[in-house]
Amino acid sequence: MIIKTTSVSECKEHTITDENVYHQRRELIKKMGFLGAASLLSSPASAGILDIFGEEKTPEALFAQNNLSYAAEKGGFAEELTPEAKITSHNNFYEFGVEKQQPAALSQSFKVDPWQLKISGEVENPLTLGYDDLYSSFDLEERIYRLRCVEAWSMVVPWIGFSLAELVKKAKPTSRAKYLAFETLYDPVQMPGQRSRRLGGGIDYPYVEGLRIDEAMNPLALMSVGLYGKTLPPQNGAPIRLVVPWKYGFKSIKSVVGIKFVEKKPPTTWNLLAANEYGFYANVNPAVDHPRWSQASERRITTGGIFAQNRIPTLPFNGYSEQVADLYSDMNLRKYY
């Protein structure tokens, strides 16, 4: 499926990546990946007496990622990509610890094969995808998307995956199917955050998320199985995760084992935890502040240390208004945040 880039999401001249850098990107990324792995293995500065809870376990061996074959994003994406090393070392995945670096440190022995993704509920064609099916049932394509976290930072990620709409069509929803309810793997043996309240942030597991069926059918909604040309590492939601680029990151549920088509709006994890802070829709909206963070602007994480000036205005629907605003035309987005 071809997604046309339209004027609003098209990028301004000054944000366009230098062509040389673009052509050498895989080379550059490899180098950065090397640096990233090296910094993962060296002890971080925070392991000192002043940070009594800073516990870092060095992973014995990195999770093995496989190369994927896929159709590359046509025309590219003009905003600078976040380096792979940063995408894979700065993660909110409380199943592997609440601190950003913990998922990369604590998930490297995660087993993804065998895997079962069960599609069930109000469908004519319930199905289960095994590990190999995740990569072979649909044509894989690259989609370069902005990722906006509710904590007011953002990245640009080259995902690989297939449209959620393809999966929905294959399952053939009945007329009663109004919502999709997603569920993350529940496996306390493998996921330390599900064992320990302190590591897992006091969340009730398994993590659950949901979409309205018309949101799920939007061509932007992606089931991702990889990034930067390879299968996903565990900290990014291996082996398969949802990516909904116009919503805050917590909607994009990771390591999915179940998608159930349902009639009523399903419960969602962060909404259950703090309904006044996290709504069901969670569309990126600079006009509606979160109680903890102004959502008017964001820090874009790319290269560079703390002196990289990277605060940029946040766009409605994360810059995807033209593709998705119609879904919400009759809704008060202040009420349905």
């Binding site: 910094s39 971080p44 500065a45 925070s46 000192g48 007496i49 002043l50 940070d51 009594i52 809870f53 940063k86 995408i87 070392s89 700065h90 993660n91 950003k100 670096q101 930072w153 820090r299 994480i301 290269t303 560079g304 240390g305 703390i306 002196f307 990289a308």
Partner: peptide
């Protein structure tokens, strides 16, 4: 050590969050 890592981009994915958290918890501990 913290600021050296932060300036040279060796503090993980988001050096800004790292320096904020480290100095905050450090102040409280002290």
């Amino acid at each position: 050590d913290l600021y050296y890592g932060a300036v040279t981009d060796q503090l993980g994915g988001d050096p800004v969050e790292a320096v904020i958290h480290f100095t905050g918890i450090g102040a409280l501990n002290l």
